[in-house]
Computed example of a mutant assay.
Amino acid sequence: METDVTTDKRATVDVTLSSATLAEAEALGVDVSRAAEAGVAAAARAERQRRWKEENREAMEQMKVWVEENGLPLSELRKF
């Protein structure tokens, strides 16, 4: 579920950064708020994927065993 940051309500939060990182970002014209938001969104996406994989690990392992025993479904229709 991707979030559209252009239409979401905004929330104010405190974030602690090293002074060197902040100074460099500001010197380069980086929008620190948007960059932080992008980083948090990426971390949330990665955690969501990690959890999905863990929650579905058993089913994926069962599917792998099934394919090893039975082959790919519809493999006879493949043209490569």
Results as ranks from 00 to 15, higher is better:
residue 6 T to C: 05
residue 9 K to L: 05
residue 18 S to A: 07
residue 74 L to R: 11
residue 36 A to T: 06
residue 80 F to K: 10
residue 27 A to P: 08
residue 36 A to R: 03
residue 37 E to Q: 05
residue 48 R to Y: 07
residue 50 R to W: 12
residue 40 V to R: 03
residue 48 R to P: 00
residue 14 D to Y: 00
residue 53 K to T: 03
residue 38 A to V: 14
residue 51 R to W: 08
residue 55 E to C: 12
residue 2 E to D: 14
residue 69 E to R: 13
residue 30 V to N: 12
residue 3 T to S: 09
residue 57 R to Q: 15
residue 59 A to E: 13
residue 68 E to T: 10
residue 70 N to D: 10
residue 27 A to G: 15
residue 52 W to S: 01
residue 20 A to H: 09
residue 8 D to E: 10
residue 48 R to M: 01
residue 39 G to H: 10
residue 8 D to S: 14
residue 48 R to C: 00
residue 80 F to V: 10
residue 74 L to C: 11
residue 31 D to A: 14
residue 6 T to Y: 02
residue 72 L to C: 02
residue 3 T to Q: 11
residue 36 A to W: 08
residue 4 D to Q: 12
residue 28 L to E: 13
residue 1 M to L: 08
residue 64 K to R: 15
residue 80 F to R: 12
residue 20 A to Y: 07
residue 63 M to W: 07
residue 37 E to N: 01
residue 67 V to D: 02
residue 4 D to C: 13
residue 68 E to S: 11
residue 41 A to P: 05
residue 42 A to L: 10
residue 8 D to P: 03
residue 24 E to V: 12
residue 9 K to A: 11
residue 46 A to P: 08
residue 56 N to H: 03
residue 15 V to D: 01
residue 14 D to L: 02
residue 13 V to A: 01
residue 14 D to G: 00
residue 35 A to R: 05
residue 33 S to M: 02
residue 11 A to C: 05
residue 75 S to W: 11
residue 35 A to S: 08
residue 24 E to M: 12
residue 18 S to P: 04
residue 12 T to H: 08
residue 74 L to S: 11
residue 36 A to N: 04
residue 67 V to M: 09
residue 76 E to V: 09
residue 75 S to L: 10
residue 78 R to N: 04
residue 73 P to W: 14
residue 6 T to V: 05
residue 20 A to W: 06
residue 61 E to K: 08
residue 15 V to M: 00
residue 63 M to A: 14
residue 13 V to Y: 00
residue 53 K to Q: 14
residue 58 E to W: 04
residue 10 R to W: 02
residue 67 V to F: 04
residue 8 D to T: 13
residue 15 V to R: 01
residue 67 V to G: 02
residue 55 E to T: 13
residue 76 E to G: 04
residue 67 V to Q: 04
residue 77 L to K: 09
residue 77 L to D: 06
residue 21 T to D: 13
residue 17 L to D: 02
residue 20 A to R: 13
residue 39 G to I: 11
residue 24 E to N: 09
residue 49 Q to H: 10
residue 17 L to G: 03
residue 9 K to E: 04
residue 63 M to N: 12
residue 18 S to T: 15
residue 39 G to P: 09
residue 70 N to A: 07
residue 64 K to W: 12
residue 67 V to L: 07
residue 55 E to K: 14
residue 79 K to I: 04
residue 31 D to H: 08
residue 76 E to Q: 06
residue 38 A to P: 04
residue 29 G to S: 12
residue 41 A to K: 13
residue 44 A to H: 05
residue 52 W to V: 00
residue 77 L to Q: 07
residue 50 R to A: 13
residue 59 A to D: 13
residue 75 S to F: 10
residue 78 R to C: 05
residue 64 K to F: 13
residue 66 W to L: 06
residue 23 A to D: 09
residue 18 S to F: 03
residue 72 L to P: 00
residue 70 N to R: 12
residue 25 A to C: 05
